[in-house]
Design a protein around this nucleic acid. Structure first.
Length: 375
DNA sequence: TAAAGCTGATCTGCTCCTTG
DNA sequence: CAAGGAGCAGATCAGCTTTA
């Protein structure tokens, strides 16, 4: 009972069928029209663009993710804000059209449908996400996607909604693009999942034949800040339980993050772990709280004999970002310690430094063997 | 040929202006 | 006058095209 009560405190999204969303859009327009017929001015009710306002997002101890507290609505008036009004109507129209014909479009496609009205891509992005937040559905329910960005390779079969199967092992050794909103379920016998910050490291790992040396595993990269599809896949993998392994039954597959030891590396890792404030209304489908930070850690370059001259000085932007991260009280102490040491030493370490010395696999092997060093 | 700029997805911070 | 919304700017990642 308490569960129900507590979950009510946060916004939740529900996957809805097409008809439901179409109905929702139509009733929104009908309401607008009847208001006009009654003589009241044309006003649309939507949610506030509170993306970057942390006051509407809160860390939820129970789920270990960032969650949006509630919707606060705003009125967009045709008289006061005609452009904003027109943008919402146009987006509603486009989404309605997409849903009726059951085709999907990327946010970029939508932007190009009316460049003059939208002005820039960001306007479309914001309007789409506001709409998803208003209807309390994942973005995919509007038949809007973003073009694929993340890569995956390894012991994973992705069964898509149209029943086609993507075998991430067999295709090629470059990794395959993570499909957006097409995943029905996955099959894997992987012993761990390695989430890598940068594509360069990802490709390096593949070319060093990591699969031959480490056994069945999955490598994923979001190429910097991950898109929704990448975060969804990591989340799906994080929810899996080993069923075919007697020893590990009912245990999750370890999800390990391999990130730079710099403030941006930690921030990107935190997007995987806690979710972002921008998409906090859908974080229950996007955040993976069980992810652990495998490396790089400050202590590592002494422990593993990494040459000290590969360390880079902190820039002023790094320092600023570091202080901002320390403000987030939900970061665990281990992360804060790393940030503090970074600031104290005024140095950062990038994964590139390991690649140059060609001992990245040795490093990973040693890290795998001591789970208590994962943060 | 190397550097700069664009595309494209994501994130946040800063500043101006409206609103109660 | 303070709080909050809107819009812009700039950061991460990376690849491709254009320019000096």
């Amino acid at each position: 009972m308490d569960n129900i009560h507590e979950s009510k405190a946060f916004l939740e999204t529900t996957f809805r069928p097409r008809d439901w969303v179409i109905q929702k859009i139509e009733s929104m327009i009908e309401k607008l029209l009847s208001n006009i017929a009654n003589g009241s001015p044309p006003v649309l009710q939507t949610v506030s663009n509170v993306k970057r306002r942390e006051c509407h997002t809160e860390y939820d101890v129970q789920s270990g993710t960032l969650r949006r507290k509630s919707n606060n609505f705003k009125d967009v008036s045709f008289l006061k804000n005609p452009r904003g009004f027109a943008i919402i109507i146009r987006i509603l129209d486009i989404c309605h059209e997409l849903l009726i014909h059951d085709v999907t479009a990327t946010k970029r496609d939508i932007y190009y449908k009316d460049v003059r009205l939208f002005g820039n891509q960001h306007t479309v992005d914001a309007a789409i996400d506001e709409l998803a937040c208003l209807f309390r559905v994942p973005r995919a329910c509007l038949n809007v996607t973003a073009s694929a960005k993340g890569l995956v390779a390894g012991a994973l079969k992705i069964i898509q909604k149209d029943k086609t199967i993507l075998d991430c092992q067999s295709l090629n050794n470059q990794g395959i693009l993570i499909p957006t909103d097409q995943i029905d379920r996955v099959e894997t016998n992987a012993e761990f999942v390695l989430v890598v910050e940068k594509e360069a490291t990802f490709q390096y790992l593949l070319s060093s034949r990591i699969f031959e040396k480490f056994g069945p595993c999955i490598i994923i990269t979001g190429k910097g800040y991950p898109d929704l599809a990448t975060r969804q896949l990591v989340k799906i993998l994080g929810d899996l339980r080993h069923s075919n392994n007697l020893i590990n039954s009912f245990e999750t597959i370890p999800i390990l993050g391999f990130f730079d030891n710099d403030p941006y590396g930690i921030e990107i890792l935190s997007v995987y772990k806690f979710g972002s404030t921008a998409m906090s209304f859908d974080n229950e489908n996007l955040a993976t709280p069980i992810i652990k930070w495998l490396g790089l850690h400050c202590a590592d370059w002494q422990k593993y004999n990494i040459s000290k001259n590969t360390l880079l000085p902190l820039t002023s932007a790094d320092r600023k970002k570091a202080y901002q991260l320390l403000q987030r009280e939900y970061f665990q102490d281990e992360w804060r310690n790393e940030i503090c040491r970074m600031l104290y030493m005024e140095k950062k370490a990038e994964m590139q430094s390991l690649c140059e010395n060609d001992d990245i696999l040795n490093y990973l092997m040693m890290k795998f063997k001591c789970p208590n060093s994962w943060l």
